[in-house]
């Protein structure tokens, strides 16, 4: 809990870390009408996928910073040596990170939905799927961040490592929004996203801890 609180305070102090992914999220969504077509019917059709892809990229963008500053000032090493179980510490860090990015993205998503003419029936599906999907993105992304934290140029590498792993979340997430738009029941999609989240919650912290120990030991 203490780690979690410390993380929140730190993140609030680094406001750019909170704001930058959100701006990026908004900008990516702006590119599509400009690059493809501003026609409402067409945009409405691609909106679920575009919002999800934008959220995914924004999360990815924020991952590099997750362990970076702690690594540079040496507090990550102390964290690994501390008596608290690493599983919990890592989980707290990721939860704090998610609240700064994933949750913020979820709250902002309806704005993008409006810009892309997503029918209003799709909004609850969008919010719910992002709410269940973005924690998985943060957890999986943190594995990539932990593996590359010791490298000077980790940013691009993280994307290479993590993007293929994001695909199932993207598929189920955007399908959930599409189902919501066409008025189909959402339960199945959300259950699948929930199952992915449960799996990630159980396994990702183990992988993150292992990856951190490996990165630090060198």
């Amino acid at each position: 809990m203490a780690t979690c609180r410390r993380e929140f305070l730190l993140s609030f102090r680094r406001k750019s870390d909170l704001v930058n992914p959100l701006i990026f999220f908004l900008m990516v969504a702006t590119l599509f009408p400009l690059g493809v077509s501003p026609e409402p019917g067409f945009l409405a059709q691609i909106a679920p996928g575009v919002v999800w892809v934008a959220a995914l990229l924004a999360t990815l963008l924020s991952m590099d910073a997750l362990f970076r500053s702690d690594y540079e000032d040496g507090s990550l090493e102390q964290l690994l040596l501390s008596p608290q179980p690493l599983f919990i510490v890592v989980l707290a860090k990721v939860v704090a990170h998610w609240m700064m990015t994933g949750l913020a993205l979820t709250i902002m998503a309806p704005l993008l939905g409006l810009m892309l003419f997503l029918p209003s029936e799709g909004m609850p599906g969008l919010m719910l799927s992002l709410l269940l999907g973005t924690p998985t993105l943060s957890l999986v992304g943190a594995i990539g961040a932990a593996l590359t934290v010791g490298l000077k140029k980790g940013g691009v590498l993280i994307s290479l490592l993590v993007l293929p792993l994001y695909i199932p979340v993207l598929i189920f997430g955007s399908s959930a929004v599409q189902a919501a738009v066409t008025g189909l029941p959402l339960g199945g999609y959300l259950a699948l996203l929930g199952a992915l989240l449960a799996l990630a919650l159980g396994l990702a912290p183990l992988a993150i801890s292992a990856a951190l120990r490996i990165s630090i030991s060198s």
Binding site: I143, A207, S215
Partner: peptide
């Protein structure tokens, strides 16, 4: 590190 990634 590659081993962890391969397992994931």
């Amino acid at each position: 590190a590659s081993a962890v990634l391969a397992l994931v």
